[in-house]
Each structure stands twice: as structure tokens, then as C-alpha cells.
């Protein structure tokens, strides 16, 4: 999938730049952005490493297991076939908790760890293909679960909004609908795939 996105974006950029006469900007953007990408990775490294460290402490002290047990009734419905109390479920719980609380990028390292544990636990014969549980977790992370939209609220305040937090109910409604639509789409597609295979 990524090969089409990458080629598509670069080819489209070339055509648009030729049409709008912005070839010079396009040319400099390649050279400038590769530095920016490294900078982003360095910032991200700090955050990922920080949370990975804390996550290991929480794991070996048995804290994540307790948290996962609390979330198990809901999460085991979404993620079928994963061991209750297993490591994959623990990381999924951490990922979703961090998402809801909006803990400065903590959800990414938790999510990556969860993906790897799902892979280890399911031991699929076809590792090139994403499993249903991997897709469910990823799709949940492409929808926003964050309760308080801190970035939007901070910027609204900065630009002189009379009520920066008035958007809250709308954000919640929109988040819930987005998540419901994406998960329903997953369930429908999964069923369609199964029917095609029969």
C-alpha cells in the first residue's frame, strides 16, 4: 500500500509543480525536508525512549497486568482470540489509555509494542499480511480517542477565542462517530473477506 502512496504523492507533486511553476520550491523541499524528517525522528526518539522505559517498569512490577484486567471486559470484545491477561492485551490497554488521556505521544510506543506482541501471540503463517487484530488496533489509533483536545484548545486561546473549550461536546460526538464508522467498516470488510474465501 505504501508504495502507491509514496509514488503517487511524488508523481503528483512533479506534475503540479510543473503546472504551477513551483519546480524550484519542490526541488528545495526535498533537500530541506530530509533534515526536518531526521529532526522529527530525534524528537520522537526522546518521547518513545522515555515511555518505553516507564512501560518496562510498569510491566515487570505487574502494574500493567492489573490495568489490563480492568479493561478486559470491553477490549476482549474488540480483540478476539488474544489471551486474556497476555502481554498483547496489556500493551493494547496501555495504548488506548494513553490515547484517551492524551499523554504526549505515549500512545505510539505502546501501540508499536502491542503490534509486536499481537504478532508474537498469533504466530500467523503469513507474516506479510496484517491480522484482523493488528488492523483493529491501527484503525483505532487513526481515529482520535483523546478526551481533551489540548492542541486545538491551546491555539483557540492563543487566537483570542471567547470560549476555547466550547468545542468539547462537538469533538466527543465527532470522535465517537469516527471510531464507530471505522470499526464497523472493519467488521463488514472482515466478514466480506471470509465469505469470499469460502
Amino acid at each position: 500500500m505504501m508504495k502507491y502512496i509514496m509514488t503517487g504523492l511524488v508523481a503528483a507533486a512533479f506534475v503540479f509543480a510543473a503546472l504551477t511553476g513551483r519546480m524550484e520550491e519542490l526541488s528545495t523541499s526535498f533537500l530541506e525536508e530530509c533534515g526536518n524528517a531526521v529532526q522529527l525522528a530525534i524528537t520522537l526518539t526522546g518521547v518513545i525512549v522515555l515511555w518505553s522505559g516507564l512501560m518496562r517498569v510498569a510491566q515487570s512490577s505487574g502494574l500493567t497486568e492489573k490495568l489490563a484486567a480492568l479493561a478486559a471486559p470491553v477490549l476482549s470484545k474488540l480483540f478476539g482470540g488474544l489471551k486474556r491477561g497476555g502481554k498483547a492485551m496489556q500493551y493494547i490497554t496501555l495504548n488506548i489509555t494513553a490515547n484517551i488521556l492524551g499523554l504526549g505521544n505515549a500512545s505510539t510506543p505502546f501501540g508499536i509494542a502491542a503490534m509486536r506482541e499481537i504478532e508474537r501471540e498469533e504466530r500467523s503463517p503469513d507474516p506479510q499480511t496484517a491480522s484482523a487484530n493488528m488492523i483493529t488496533l491501527t484503525v483505532m489509533n487513526t481515529a482520535s480517542l483523546q478526551l481533551i483536545p489540548t492542541t486545538a484548545a491551546a491555539l483557540r486561546l492563543k487566537y483570542g477565542s471567547a470560549a476555547p473549550m466550547e468545542i468539547l461536546p462537538c469533538v466527543w460526538i465527532s470522535s465517537v462517530c469516527t471510531l464507530a464508522a471505522a470499526l464497523t467498516c472493519c467488521a463488514v470488510c472482515r466478514r466480506a473477506e471470509r465469505r469470499r474465501r469460502l
Binding site: 509514496m6 511524488v10 507533486a13 509543480a17 530541506e32
Partner: peptide, 15 residues
Amino acid sequence: LFCLVVTVAAFRASG
């Protein structure tokens, strides 16, 4: 991550 950042920036720069 690197590929995505660079190609998206290229798309934006092209207008």
C-alpha cells in the same frame, strides 16, 4: 516515517 515526511512535504511544496 522518513519517506512519508519527505513525500508529503514535496506534495505541499508543489502547490
